[in-house]
Design a protein around this nucleic acid. Structure first.
Lengths: 126, 126
DNA sequence: CCATTCGCTTGCAAAATGCAAGTGAAAATA
DNA sequence: TATTTTCACTTGCATTTTGCAAGCGAATGG
């Protein structure tokens, strides 16, 4: 029980997290891919169920969705709760940490609306 | 010259850009990976040369850096200029579109500082 | 009870990533 | 000018991640 800890110390350097103490780098360690922030967006739009995320227009593959939901929960950004009382199916909702990502998504939305042609907002102002 | 246009129409659906008209999705089509926004961060910190980006603490591989700089230039976020007048080497700087990403990076930095332990800001207030 | 939906899992091909090593031109130095 | 060093990549290759389709058991609805 002395070799191979539960941290990332024995992984190749590129997979060790965090890559640096930079808050941007740390954020990207968690959120830096093509899908994760889209799931967060969906959560901010009030979607809660696996099938809802799956039905979003970008068409996230279900295995990726499973992985990303797990990652969000593991990092305390989302939580998994019963879909209804007594139900054995689950819903997801943002934690406080996840809600705190709103300014990031807002800034990204605003940038996209101004600089990328043909985009239109789904999230209204808030 | 009629088959295979310069767009993404003949790529598999998952690689077609944009994935949707959502401004967040469009932004992520360009910026959604673990490295691109770190290069943008470096540019915002005033770094301009390939070697500077390469020397950042996260240690971006040089082949990836080449690819990401190219992508940023292609999307009009950065531009490639002579490193000095008369020099045949190049420097990179943010365009107006790239500067417009500052709120995104700021929001991400603020989130990281609050929610990820052990992070410290490199960019000061602005 | 039966059909349908949900929330995944699995298998596999293709693409992206990470690493080390190499290269040729440009710049710095002697 | 000659030599060395730096720079900005490129290449090759192993590993990892992604995307897609199909399948599957439990939960739900009728």
């Amino acid at each position: 029980m002395s070799q191979s800890s539960n941290k990332t110390e024995d992984l190749p350097p590129s997979r060790q997290l965090p890559r640096s103490p930079c808050p941007v780098a740390c954020a990207l360690d968690i959120l830096g891919d093509r899908w994760t922030l889209l799931v967060v967006r969906d959560l901010m739009l009030g979607r809660t169920r696996f099938k809802d995320f799956s039905a979003s227009p970008e068409g996230i593959p279900t295995n990726i969705l499973t992985d990303r939901l797990e990652r969000l929960v593991r990092h305390g950004i989302a939580e998994r709760i019963p879909a209804a009382e007594g139900s054995k199916r689950f819903a997801y909702k943002l934690t406080e940490k996840g809600e705190a990502l709103r300014p990031v998504l807002r800034a990204m939305r605003d940038w996209g609306l101004v600089w990328e042609e043909g985009t239109r907002a789904a999230l209204s102002e808030s």
